[in-house]
Nucleic acid binder design. Sequence first.
RNA 1: GGGUGAUUAGCUCAGUGGUAGAGCGCUUCGUUCACAUCGAAGAUGUCAGAGGUUCAAAUCCUCUAUCACCCA
Length: 1021
Amino acid sequence: MAMDKTFDAAEAEARLYASWLEAGAFAAGANAREGAEAFSIMIPPPNVTGSLHMGHAFNNTLQDILVRWHRMRGHDTLWQPGQDHAGIATQMVVERELAKEGGQSRREMGREAFLKKVWEWKAQSGGTIINQLERLGASCDWSRNAFTMSGAPGAPAGEDGNFHDAVIRVFVEMYEKGLIYRGKRLVNWDPHFETAISDLEVENVETPGGMWHFKYPLADGRTYTYVEKDEDGNVLFEEERDYISIATTRPETMLGDGAVAVHPSDERYAPIVGALCEIPVGPKEHRRLIPIITDEYPDPDFGSGAVKITGAHDFNDYAVAQRCDIPCYRLMDTAAQMRADGAPYAEAADIALEVAKGERTLTQTETDAINLVPDDLRGLDRFEARKRVVEQITDEGLAVMVPPTDPRLGGKAPAAPEEGGEPRDEQLVPLVEHKPIMQPFGDRSKVVIEPMLTDQWFVDTSKIVGPALDAVRDGTVEILPERDKKVYFHWLENIEPWCISRQLWWGHQIPVWHTPGFGEEWRSFCAATEAEALEQMHATFGDDAEFILVEDEAAATDMLAEYFQNATDTTGVDQRRRPQAIPVFRDPDVLDTWFSSGLWPIGTLGWPEDTEELRRYFPTSVLITGFDIIFFWVARMMMMQYAIVGERPFDTVYVHALVRDEKGKKMSKSLGNVLDPIELIDEFGADAVRFTLSSMAAMGRDLKLSKDRVAGYRNFGTKLWNACRFAEMNGVFEGHSFRAEPPSAKATANAWIIGETAKVREEVDAAMSAFRFNDAANGLYAFVWGIVCDWYVEFAKPLLNDEATAAETRATMAWVLDRCLLMLHPFMPFVTEELWGTLGDRPKMLVHGDWPQDRAEACVTPEAEREMSWVIALIDGVRSARAQMRVPNGMHVPLLVADLDKAGRNAWAANEALIARLARVESLTETQDFPKGTVTIPVGGATFGMPLDGIVDVAAEMARLEKSLSKLQKEVAGLEKRVSNPKFVESAPDDVVEETRESLAARREEERTLEIALARLREIG
RNA sequence: GGGUGAUUAGCUCAGUGGUAGAGCGCUUCGUUCACAUCGAAGAUGUCAGAGGUUCAAAUCCUCUAUCACCCA
């Protein structure tokens, strides 16, 4: 059966993948030798909402290459697949679906019904990315596919699994060990999703903004002398002031100011430190007063040097407020609208004033209950509120005013009257600097993040970071490339508490139940199950206590209020005032998705059960991941695995870079420069896409991907296909059976290619061991195309036609091509598997082929190597001379040779047929006298000549030779300089000196040949 | 502001101290029975710049310039 001219990827890929699946070829331990070492990789779980993008394609190609390589080597291999439940992303997608359908919204349908919808959605759409990974050829053990929400309450049949239990168990353990705590802290709040997010989920983007300058009048009409001095203490400026000037990018937060801070060394404000000043906004009759304090935070050289402190809406301010005991007044609700709850402004402002004057202190809860938003601003969006605040202050004349020419205004300064401009308006304008400011955005929602004071759960990362740092420091865990270790260290050495609670519904609900407490706050009970939590409650409240599970905090509060009709503090329950039935509610929050992903290595292997898989495959061998989740995931897996099982999650982390478009831009939907891997696979085949990515995978460098490149590697597949097709047509595989050892070969070309094959096998293994995927891929490319196809197949043609060499050549070619298929299989699994099956009867599929172990030492025949390089040099020389002398392609020419040495004589004799064929030579004649019009071709150990009487252009030939000669002379001069330098001979290693001398000798010989030839041409000319 | 990296052929990039490379593109030639998704031949470099270390530097060190990314 004749093979087609090309490989039909579109037809073959699905068929081949199905046959791998059918054979169970990817199952854990498949193709493992007895007692083989284990090799395991955990897939970085893609979002269940996700679809395959180039980053995934790259990441999973690299994993698949490693996995297939190890599997073929007979290792006990596991590639563990799975998906991440992706809390925010999934909730967002499902909510969007609901909106599209026009039915009930999430809140309308309630938590339980909504979660049911999510599971339905997951069943329907969650498999997308798995199918796409299959298109890529990923050889995951799909029977073990894991999901970070498997086994959660409400999970439908088929979604059972251990992951939920593992997550809950870890939370409880960490809680009991004191590694998890709850507290009111300033967190990044996403007003769109109305949840806290971690600092890693915030993107800081420079956006156009403004810096407003306002006057905060001093209380009671106080004044002071404001003095600006230069570095030498000379007075630059001096005036009497009744205010302190403040710059802010967020005027709407002024309403929640608790103080104004200046640097302790700032002499300008020293006279008024400790005084009260007035927030210049809000109803005039209830202006709030706040103290002027000192703190190290304000930079005296920035703006006015004075900073307003709004502890509840800025991270820096929060730190100052903590240090200086300044109250933090929350101004916004969960949607980042100005609060509309609580008492009217007048009452709230009165309380705040008493606090500022030190006449009253508030608990945190009391502070949080105070709404300092003036009545007219309540319920407004924060950006609308900003506009109003600015207007109100400006109208009242409390904006800092400057001439319109002030450079800080940023606009074009109007031309001065003397330069022909309009006469200057004496009117001053408010000082607003329009300039780019860094703004935090939610990485999912793309809305401006609001720092918000809320109750959240945190992992006390400082307590678990130690082993994660040590393991990398002492080499227990290797991070490649080296550079990323620094990134890892830098982040972990400056680790912040990790906010793990999210105000979402889709996720692992925190296993904590709250009852009324003994003090002000709710009392928390953490346990894996409700029953265990109740046991703990009984232990605390007494066996006779009766608990009633209610929906949420509000329900519990209401219930308590009924018991204590007149109590103002309904949470303040103690033994004496214990109600008949104690309300209990479960913490509504869910855990950060990354908390569950943090357990991926053990969770997917069955932990907390002591499973066989856990014993075999943990710690895992390699983690392959993108640099963008070193913090999100790698560092947290390290911390959590050590905290929970006291063991490293993996031996090696290979961090790869980003796939960009051909211009180096990040691929993004909004830029429209996204290359869809599936479309590329459709067009060029999965093998081409995979090979492209691996050949570009130089460690630590971004990939700039272009379609041309993919097309090039598709052509490579075709080239391989056709080499095999040639072999098949020549009966190379008839009766062939796979052989581990190379066949014995007498013909030099055969002996030579066997050695070359072994050399490349060593190169590939070395490259793979060092995670140098590009070196492995490019080495194979150069070998298969540049050596096997360009030379060996051509050499083989005359050998196959010769009875004497035909049999061994067939055997050799079959062996070499088998080797090519084996070694290329991890990179190009489809075309190689197809060829493997087409070309012969095989005991097993290539996916389980035995990875070669040929050693160059055993396979290389040095004489064959020397002889074939001589032959190649001769053919190259003749071809080059022919092309430059414009000898017609089809013409066979006679060849002359002078001074042919013994090695050359043997080489010619052994390879005459193939030289004649490839160089189009019709005869060889030995002579010392090249006739007029002969082109000279210097080859080591001989001078060849091509008599082209009448054809050759003497001038052209001289030019050709002179060009070679001058290049050669430059090299000779350089080498001579080195060899004649005694210091070089002294200091350089012997083999380098020796090599240099040999090289010099060879070049000198060639130089002489060229000189003689030139001299002869000159005589003629 | 702090950190990390990059700068090599027209383009995209390899190259961990020992004769500057690959792919693509380009030019010329080619319908030889594996392959035109191909073959043969060819052109193209102040290895960003300036100093330094070394027998020897694209490679190591210092500075400068430009760009990119990460963290504030």
